[in-house]
Write a protein that binds this DNA or RNA. Structure first.
Lengths: 250, 250
DNA sequence: TTTCTATTGTGTAAAATTAACACATGTAAA
DNA sequence: TTTACATGTGTTAATTTTACACAATAGAAA
């Protein structure tokens, strides 16, 4: 591990005032680290917030679950790497994805120093029905996960926390819902993520006043009670007014 | 660049079901990247938000300013690396420091691929009077910086934006002020960071109601008008009540 | 000593937002 | 036809935010 990187420990830096001619020489004189991206992929199903995990392929973590991740390729921008992982593993594109934080604790990877950049992703679980091939993949209820491989539990907790804050500032939640949804579903989503109970009438008022909901005129189907109206999220309008958006406050 | 890392491009992964015995072997088969930390160090002086920059020591960026940064050492946690940079360059310890974001665009460093993790730091500028030795260091007004070496302008902009949001959620600003300060100074700070004008009376009410200000009983000195009271920030009390803290709203 | 200037320190009323709460309506199942 | 259950809607009280004016106090100037 890191044998070649420790050959030259003294930086190429000139002592005083002199400028460094070769940036390349400078760079190659420092330690280098393998980089991974890890995706915390959230979904929403049965009124629970879920996260997509894969069985670890390392002997040492046998039986444990881990985030979907991969090493970054040569010269690969990390956003691209995360997106690649997402596409390869879920077959989906056009997915919400955002960088959250970098984790660098020495010893976090049993194979030596590996730095990982955590990404948070929100997707519609219905559009990613796991095939029979995917017996290594599984949607877990976020609340039930006790331990994970590597430091992935810590990463997941951080990202879940991040999501709770983030969803108060931007209407990300819609990425987790089907294209058409009832207000009840929307409220269930917020209650699941924030882990609180909300007043139905005030919730409704709040979202209508935001003016990002399009009334489809359609109604729920297959419910054993009065069906609710179905709405769509107005992504366009949101993008236009994003700057004036100051967040939700329940 | 990256010549040894591209020797083995095929991952060691077993095709189906088989677990990987050697995590080490897996890790060493992937590309490796030099990592830097870059500190966006904010200060407050003459009612302006400032940032501490250093003249780039690279020939290619001659005359341009850059963030204070360094390469991460072997097995060095990045928080530690950032803290090390901060201490080495400013001689200060016990400084507010927080990771903000990782920047990975290929081509962002002229010496080849270098990944950098940006940290945001807030310190009391009075306690870091630049000595004569530090003629490579300079406090710049944040508003005046047009261009910087590397992608540091982008990083600075991102961190400034981050700070504007962050300061609404946590009372970080006190790190930028002297131990004892008047309410006017505090308001100037917020106005400088947020780039807005605030109502003096409401600002005052807001901060008193937070109950984090300790009245020292002392007064300003050397002002050509009625002197204001001096306060201290109650860090202890804040730490205790942090969890219930929901932010400021001007 | 007096006057002037500038900034501190304080309170209240209007406006906006949030929180709490109840009843009629519509569908499917019994 | 009745029952069960969730939808859809409006009002009032409480809280928070905004807007705004005047007396007090120090140093500087006259």
């Amino acid at each position: 591990m890191n044998n070649d990187s420790s050959v030259i420990q003294q930086p190429v830096r000139t002592k005083n005032g002199g400028l460094i001619k070769s940036a390349e020489k400078l760079v190659t004189s420092y330690p280098r680290v393998p980089i991974t991206v890890d995706c915390v992929i959230f979904g929403f199903d049965e009124n629970e917030l879920k996260i997509l995990l894969i069985r670890s392929d390392l002997e040492i973590f046998k039986g444990q679950w881990s985030l979907l991740g991969d090493f970054a390729a040569d010269n690969e921008e990390l956003d691209d790497a995360a997106y690649r992982v997402l596409c390869e593993r879920t077959g989906m594109d056009d997915v919400y994805l955002e960088q959250v934080r970098t984790f660098s604790k020495p010893g976090r990877h049993p194979g030596g120093r590996v730095l990982t950049v955590a990404y948070c992703s929100l997707l519609n679980i219905e559009q990613h029905k796991l095939g029979k091939m995917d017996n290594e993949l599984h949607w877990h209820s976020v609340q039930n996960i006790k331990e994970m491989a590597f430091d992935h539990k810590e990463i997941m907790d951080y990202c879940y926390n991040w999501l709770q804050k983030r969803i108060m500032e931007h209407p990300l939640g819609f990425n987790l819902l089907p294209e058409k949804f009832s207000l009840r579903e929307l409220q269930n989503l917020y209650e699941a993520i924030l882990n609180v109970k909300l007043d139905r009438r005030n919730f409704r008022k709040k979202f209508f006043s935001m003016d990002f909901l399009i009334d489809t005129g359609e109604y729920e189907d297959d419910v054993p009670h009065r069906p609710g109206r179905l709405y769509q999220f107005n992504f366009q309008k949101y993008e236009l007014n994003k700057r004036r958006w100051t967040g939700i406050d329940f």
